[in-house]
Design a binder for these strands. Sequence first.
DNA 1: CACGTGACCCTAT
DNA 2: TATAGGGCCACGT
Length: 104
Amino acid sequence: MEQRTFSEHVYDWVAKIPYGKVVTYGQIAFFMGMPRSARQVGYVLSHTPSFLSLPCHRVVNRLGATAPGWPEQRSLLQAEGIAFRKNGTVDLVQSIWRPTKDEK
DNA sequence: CACGTGACCCTAT
DNA sequence: TATAGGGCCACGT
């Protein structure tokens, strides 16, 4: 059987994030059945090759903060109509993605 | 095979 | 409400 790497599992989930929505690193880890691996999800995304054309800008941390060293992430999200709060974080209450069973 | 790194997150203080 | 500390584990060297 084909062995999927951890990275590929992460890529699969990132590809599912709908336009105009965001998910947290912890959510991805949880969906993968590895709720303690949020940090590894972040590691993978920070090394994601651009040719995969994944919407990795739709992933933020649990506070809604965008990735350090990647200021463009904010404008990419705003271009999708995602609202930001005064402190510069994403309004998670409004934009978080909660996948339904058939989406999983 | 051992070790360092890190786009995270929870708990206790 | 804020900050500090530690667990977590994929990946490259």
